[in-house]
Amino acid sequence: MSARTGMPDSLDTKDSVDISCRVNGETVAARVPVRQSLVDFLRHGLGLTGSHVGCEHGVCGACTIVLDGRCVRGCLLLAAQADGAEIETIEGATASGRLDALRAEFVTRAGLQCGFCTPGMLLTAAEFLDAGGGPDRSEIRDALSGNYCRCTGYHAIVDAVEAAARSHPRSA
């Protein structure tokens, strides 16, 4: 019996685990504490500091990453859960070029001020557009409702996503 957890030793439970995953296309192997959040592992373990840590309870969206093709909260996942997963952070998404049109519109429309929310805004907006989202402003606001901008720059952000939706390859 484990003194700390009270669980029988025969059950395979752990305080740290070995993980192997792909991050931005590169294979990563590491031993992580089971308490560590995925976003903390990406930032502190891998130096990928583009995913920001805001609220640490899933409200602000600043830690948004792409896990197995879907935008998720990096603060609501454990690093241990990344084992076997395909992860893309803002660094990888930027390097791939897939955010180029959105990024250009964010610059044109001044869709950022301090920039803290921007990585999450870009990844979430890209998922919205890739899923068929159009230039309807209320739909854009709905799609971005889980990402907080504390500089209150929402109008410019919606402007940028609307403009990107109009030039999205799907609309052509």
Partner: peptide, 11 residues
Amino acid sequence: MKPAPFAYARP
């Protein structure tokens, strides 16, 4: 804002 210690199992 970090969880208290726990053990982890992935059945």
